[in-house]
């Protein structure tokens, strides 16, 4: 059974100007559909990655999965429980302690006025659990010294802070950890340390990750399954092996080709056309059609459904017709 089941998840934000301005300037309400009809499953002990550029809605999905945001439509079930509709406080508490999150900015995600010990054990202490020696044990697990428990966050570098965040995420012995761009604020050599640590901990603790990133190379390294988002919709889902060698959606192919590569000195890439459209006013039909090299008439009229394709799923009228330029 899947640990996480996301069904028809939709989130709409009201981005209108204040009420008075709207009345005076006679503007309509402006709605931004950040996430639209997204469904996926995460089997236990696997890593599911969401990739996309800015405005793809990947972080919004992450926040809905952990319960920081309420879905406008659809629902998230964790171990079969929907936190929004569940009423049994004991069940809610149990599920809550099974979910944790690691954030992007290691400088903002630790309270600067708290000692590391208090930060790490908070998820347990807040439920009245036993915290004796817990911080020291977790610090050792993430590769820091037990003596660090008495220090304050400002005494650590970015990579070390992210390790502290990992330790905090582990404190309540969760099953699912949502990682929102966990390494994009870190330097490459430190990023490698943190990614390795996360892989090790996954095996040791039997963790499930929902890994959110804009960086394809990181995602390729970490994920068992990758979901590609474009303007709030899932456009392709596949295992990394298939996705990087035979992307079925033209957007996926574009992302792979655009990512800079180490082995391509002086590569003369034909850069992709256009930019991401305004999400408050997305194109009709398939949102990617204005930038798509394969687009035909139907693409601007009818939105393609996400359907099984090969070993994964893809939402494209011309699924599988794209070919990568140059070997990946």
């Amino acid at each position: 059974m899947s640990l996480v089941s996301v069904q028809n998840l939709t989130r709409v934000f009201d981005v209108s100007k204040p009420w008075l301005n709207r009345v005076i300037e006679r503007l309509p309400k402006r709605m931004l559909t950040a996430v639209s009809d997204v469904s996926f499953e995460i089997p236990a002990r696997t890593t599911y990655a969401l990739v996309g550029e800015s405005g793809s809605g990947k972080s919004t999905i992450g926040k809905m999965v952990v319960g920081l945001l309420r879905p406008t439509e659809g629902h998230v079930e964790i171990e079969g429980v929907d936190l929004v509709t569940e009423t049994d406080a004991a069940v809610i508490d149990r599920i809550r302690s099974d979910i944790q999150m690691i954030f992007q900015d290691p400088f903002a995600s630790l309270n600067p006025r708290w000692r590391v010990r208090d930060i790490i054990v908070e998820p347990v202490a807040a439920r009245g659990g036993d915290t004796v020696g817990l911080a020291e044990k977790l610090l050792t697990q993430v590769g820091l010294s037990p003596d660090d428990a008495g220090k304050y966050p400002h005494q650590f570098s970015g990579g070390q802070r992210q390790r502290i965040c990992v330790a905090r995420a582990l404190a309540s012995e969760p099953k699912l950890i949502v990682c929102d761009e966990p390494t994009s604020a870190l330097d490459v050599s430190v990023q490698a340390q943190v990614l390795n640590l996360m892989s090790d901990l996954k095996d040791e603790h039997g963790l499930t990750y929902l890994f959110i990133s804009h960086d394809l190379t990181v995602v390729r390294h970490m994920a068992d399954t990758i979901g590609v988002l474009y303007l709030g919709r899932l456009v392709e889902e596949a295992a990394p092996g298939d996705l990087f060698t035979k992307p079925a959606h033209p957007y996926t192919a574009m992302l792979i080709e655009a990512a800079p590569r180490l082995d391509a000195f002086g590569r003369e890439v034909e850069p992709p056309e256009g930019e991401i459209p305004d999400p408050t006013d997305p194109p009709s039909g398939c949102a990617f059609h204005p930038r798509c090299p394969l687009a035909t008439e139907i693409c601007s009229v009818e939105r393609p459904r996400l359907e099984a394709f090969g070993s994964g799923r893809v939402a494209c009228h011309h699924a599988g017709e794209i070919a990568l330029k140059g070997a990946a």
Partner: peptide, 21 residues
């Protein structure tokens, strides 16, 4: 630095890392 970029070690279970900061 080169070896620790995820792209360089595609397909490997672990990334090469430089210890420390």
């Amino acid at each position: 630095l080169m070896a620790s970029t995820p792209a360089a070690s595609a397909g490997q279970a672990r990334l090469r890392q430089i210890p420390g900061a």
